[in-house]
Write a protein that binds this DNA or RNA. Structure first.
Length: 478
RNA sequence: GCCCCCAUCGUCUAGUGGCCUAGGACGCCGCCCUUUCAAGGCGGUAACGGGGAUUCGAACUCCCCUGGGGGCACCA
């Protein structure tokens, strides 16, 4: 029996790190189920911090998860709808003496921490409200001071747990200070909600980022105080870091939001494949291009690595190309079509789009690139422009006027079939290697000096439009 | 500052004492192919952070150092 959960905070859209965590939890559950076991993947939205959470992120995260193909069996549960549960637990802890009311304000705690730091003492709550008697408490309350609820951690001893990936992890309790579980405004805090829910939902395995490894001790203590008879297994994943800075991936270092990758034309197949490769290694047959089914089959916590994984856009690009090539052409067309329509409107004739996709599939890196490359087919001659950089290439090409004249002459009279549009014979007759002048001709016809295969492109464009463009370029040259 | 985690090519990684003159993938370089650029094919460049210890034998075990990252909130 395996029950895992992905529990994002809806304080932003799903980012690379969160997606990887979701994927590993999902793969773990699906792998277990495939092996004949019972497994449940729960989606739980941790929106206890109401001020930082937004409905649009709650929705957006689910959309992105679905786009990735990560479906959940339970949920989404919203913690904001379960406050009673957490508050009841807090009341119980208060009653048991495992927690106490703290009348220190946030500012006061912060100030005392700073003072402690300056004095060379370790920071952390100093325990001021730990042992208040009834009279002191009454006095503070009479002052109208709001109270938070703090969990009382052990003063000595060692906290230990066995991480599925890292083995035994231990830390002295003396280093872990009493922490707040209910804010003075009455809102429960992450640790509490997290512990209560995992307990209540019967979570068996907690798979999450390594940045949470230190908080595990607190969650474990909380669960024990709450009467948990057993503890879940923990598995802390290596962080995904910026390959350059080696620091936790953040918005400062380029795209990290999954939405950005979707918009940039990456396929879910490629993203899940790449994400799986960050911090996990497949079986040793050398094949890294893996479908979701293959990932499910092979996934195992044993093969999760221990050190931070640098995010490498180049490898993602390569994988995306691989997946574009692996898709059936019809399927690729189906995915490109809406994008083409969105970009070019009614001009994007479905048949032409399909033909262009077929030309693009063997070489494309992203869906957006495919859409870009077919653009020349959908603009009016009056609006057709050659990219400045590509026009420079035209101008810088030797004997280009001569070549364009010959191309015009050839296109005017040749049979209108792709094979007849081959230009090598034309340049050969001039004693010029086609390769030398190809970029210029590409630019003149497609607007870019690198694009879809030229002869097929001219055919798709049609004789008149092709001629119009070449003539226009020829005139501009003169 | 304190605590925790980590340490193999530029990057992702394989490797659990002899199979390692360290393997694969991406990138990069070269060649071939070619309807430019790509894609594809072939080949190449490139790493066990340092020092001790254990052992007949260490990338693999232990210790120290160094380095990197993470955590120390009334965020999650």
């Amino acid at each position: 029996m395996v029950k895992v959960r992905f529990s994002p905070a809806p304080t932003g859209s799903l980012h690379i790190g969160g997606a990887r965590t979701a994927l590993f939890n999902w793969l773990y559950a699906r792998h277990h189920a495939r092996a004949g076991g019972e497994a449940t993947f729960v989606l739980r939205i941790e929106d206890t911090d109401v001020s930082r959470s937004r409905e649009e992120w709650v929705v957006g995260i689910q959309d992105t998860l679905r786009w990735l193909g990560l479906d959940w069996d339970e949920g989404p549960y919203l913690q904001s709808a379960r406050f009673d549960l957490y508050l009841d637990a807090a009341a119980r802890l208060l009653e048991q003496g495992d927690a106490y009311r703290c009348y220190c304000t946030e500012d006061e705690v912060k100030q005392r921490n700073e003072a402690a730091a300056e004095a060379g003492r370790p920071p952390g709550y100093d325990g001021r409200c730990r042992a208040l008697d009834a009279a002191e408490r009454a006095a503070l309350e009479a002052e109208g001071r709001p109270a938070s609820i703090r969990f009382r951690t052990p003063d000595d001893g060692v906290s230990t747990f066995t991480d599925l990936i890292r083995g035994e992890v231990r830390v002295d309790w003396s280093l872990i200070h009493d922490f707040v579980i209910v804010r003075s405004d009455g809102a429960p805090i992450f640790f509490l909600a997290n512990a209560v829910d995992d307990l209540d939902m019967g979570i068996t395995h907690v798979i999450r980022g390594e940045d949470l490894i230190d908080s595990t001790h607190r969650v474990l203590a909380l669960r024990r105080a709450l009467g948990a008879s057993d503890q879940p297994q923990f598995a802390h994943l290596p962080l995904i870091v910026d390959a350059e800075t080696r620091a936790k991936l953040s918005k400062r270092h380029g795209a990290v939001a999954l939405e950005d990758f979707i918009a940039a034309g990456y396929l879910p197949e490629a993203l899940t494949n790449y994400l799986a490769l960050l911090g996990w290694a497949p079986e040793e047959d050398g094949n890294e291009v893996l479908s979701t089914a293959e990932l499910i089959e092979q996934f195992d916590l044993d093969r999760v690595t221990h050190s931070g994984a640098g995010f490498d856009r180049d490898k993602l690009d390569w994988l995306n190309g691989e997946w574009i090539r692996r898709l059936a052409t019809d399927e690729l067309v189906a995915r490109v079509e809406p994008l083409a329509r969105e970009r070019y409107g009614a001009a994007a004739d479905p048949d032409v789009v399909a033909a262009a996709v077929e030309l693009a599939q063997p070489r494309a890196v992203t869906l957006v690139q495919i859409v870009d490359q077919m653009g020349f087919l959908f603009v009016d001659e009056s609006e057709f422009v050659i990219e400045p950089e590509s026009w420079d290439v035209v101008v810088g090409t030797d004997r280009v006027a001569e070549v364009l004249d010959a191309v015009i002459d050839h296109v005017e009279r040749c049979d209108w079939v792709v094979d007849a549009l081959a230009l090598q014979p034309v340049t050969d007759a001039l004693g010029i290697k086609f390769r030398k002048v190809a970029p210029a001709v590409y630019a003149v016809v497609e607007g870019f000096h690198r694009g879809l295969p030229l002869f097929d492109s001219m055919f798709l464009l049609g004789r008149e439009r092709t001629l119009a463009r070449v003539r226009a370029a020829r005139n501009r040259l003169a």
